[in-house]
Amino acid sequence: MRTMEWAARRDHLGGVPRKLIFMAAGAFSKTVANLLNTTTVYNLETLLRHVRHRPPGVPLLTVANHMSTLDDPLMWGFKDFPITDPELGRWVLAAEDICFKNPVLSYFFRIGKCIPITRGGGIYQEHMDEALDRLTDGAWVHTFPEGKVCQEDAPIRRLKWGTASLIARAPVTPIVLPIFHRGFEKVMPENYMFGRRPPFPLCKKDIEIYIGEPIVFDIPKLKQMAVDTSRKEFISHCHSEWPETVCGMDEAAQRCLYTNISDRIQLVLEKLRTVSKTCLNTN
């Protein structure tokens, strides 16, 4: 049974709880990002255009590196972003063991448009289908495809396949927008005192957010390439819980497809990271 799915509905109590949560979270995020710290955003117009003015029925999927437990919602708290508008707000995949520990937290994050994901539960777990439903609705979904927080200044890690599976299975291929950020690891460090996070976000830090250009995926072509590759190469089947076929592809072809999509996203995020380091060294 999906965790408090009823609370995530748009019409839950007339939408009032969702509006209140977005106003509160938005005010908190804007305070931390703009008043207590300094946030610089590059290529903001691209993000705003796709959040506000993309064609009807076309979903938006943003992907970003994961630097702290507060990346979302703080990364949307910069100036001129409509973070307090629940209609424009993102749906985000959130770790079930962190955000959904008890009924109170579950309700809070559910009305905040968070979708619980069981880490290690596989790419075909029930809640991934819920994320797919949101893309099918033409909504905006955000993911952290690295799967966990990493505060080291290191290359983008190998991405989990969940994001790739959403892109491949969506009835309308989403606009995939890459985002790289740095600075949140200083605002909410994992090992601040006695190996714990600080009780409140830290101040006087510099945050930089780099918005890339949309990554274009020709899904029919990629699917055919995956089928051809899987036939030529021996690929062991080790995910017995996977469905026998998805979009007409067996498991071997699915694995090829998700690897290709994930590698492309990883490459683009790594390029954004390189650009950010160049800017950092220049300033």
Rank of each mutant, 00 (worst) to 15 (best):
L222S: 12
G248L: 02
D228W: 04
K204S: 08
F217S: 10
H239D: 04
T245I: 02
Y210I: 14
V246C: 03
I209W: 00
C247S: 08
F217P: 01
K221V: 15
H237I: 15
F234M: 09
P243T: 04
E244K: 13
S240K: 04
I215M: 04
K223S: 10
D206T: 13
F217Q: 04
E241R: 03
V227N: 12
W242S: 05
E208D: 09
H237A: 15
V227H: 13
P214A: 03
P214Q: 06
A226V: 03
M225K: 13
I235A: 01
P214K: 03
V246S: 03
W242K: 00
K204T: 01
D206F: 14
S236I: 15
E241T: 06
K223N: 09
I209P: 05
C238P: 00
E208F: 10
W242G: 04
L222T: 12
G212K: 04
D206Y: 14
Q224E: 12
P220E: 05
I219A: 07
D218A: 08
E213N: 10
D218G: 06
I211C: 08
E233S: 10
K205D: 02
G212E: 05
I215D: 13
I219P: 12
C238M: 06
A226L: 03
E213H: 06
I207R: 04
K223P: 11
S230D: 00
V227L: 13
E244H: 13
D218R: 00
K232H: 14
P220N: 08
Q224K: 06
A226F: 07
I235G: 04
A226G: 05
P214R: 06
C247T: 03
E213W: 02
P243R: 05
I219G: 07
I235S: 09
D228H: 03
F234T: 09
M225N: 09
W242T: 02
W242Y: 15
S230M: 09
L222K: 09
E208P: 05
C247H: 08
I235Q: 05
K223Q: 08
I219V: 12
P214T: 08
V246W: 03
T245F: 06
I207Q: 07
Y210E: 05
F234K: 03
F234D: 15
K223I: 06
D228T: 12
I211R: 09
K232W: 00
Y210H: 05
